[in-house]
């Protein structure tokens, strides 16, 4: 495996601390809205397909690149590939999509895209990730599902 890695020694980023539990969080009467940190917590521990590292450690996902609109039921996530010609980019996008589809209520429309200007085949990949049917088809592929499941399994 080490011989075929595209980026053997990527830069590492610090993990953020666990979210502090507030008094409001424990108050039964207060309704908590979904926010970008909550979405970030769902995807930051997804494993990178190549390295024994998480998407957060590689700075592929960032809280600041997540938008949540509770009223319109919309969630936008942008991610940054480690290098502009990274061949794993579709797989990473699919893993983020899959994790969010499984963990979030169906009322949300989830949109996962590459951060503009960070990948050579950005538009092609974005088109794939925006196409629900293509995602569904990808998740029919046993081999692909296996790899994605390994990525989204959080230890």
């Amino acid at each position: 495996m080490a011989d075929t890695l595209e980026n053997i020694n990527p830069k590492l980023y610090k993990k953020i601390d666990d979210r502090q539990v507030t008094a409001d969080d424990e108050n039964e009467d207060i309704v908590d809205e979904f926010d970008s940190r909550e979405i970030f917590d769902l995807i930051r521990n997804i494993n990178d397909p190549e390295h024994p590292l998480t998407l957060e450690e590689l700075n592929i996902v960032e809280q600041s690149l997540i938008e949540v609109d509770n009223e319109k039921n919309k969630i936008n996530v942008q991610f940054t590939p480690t290098i502009p010609h990274c061949s794993m980019v579709t797989l990473i996008g699919l893993s983020i999509c899959t994790q969010l589809l499984r963990a979030l209520p169906a009322r949300f429309k989830i949109n996962v895209q590459i951060k503009p200007g960070t990948h050579s085949s950005e538009s092609a990949v974005n088109k794939q990730l925006a196409d629900k049917e293509r995602i569904a088809a990808a998740l029919e592929n046993g081999y692909l599902v296996e790899v994605i499941n390994q990525c989204v399994f959080i230890k």
Binding site: Q99, R102, A103, Y143, I148, N149, V152, F153, I154
Partner: peptide, 12 residues
């Protein structure tokens, strides 16, 4: 829920 998705799936 995400953990139960893995039950019996490839890559479990």
């Amino acid at each position: 829920r995400t953990r139960w998705f893995l039950v019996g799936s490839p890559g479990e």
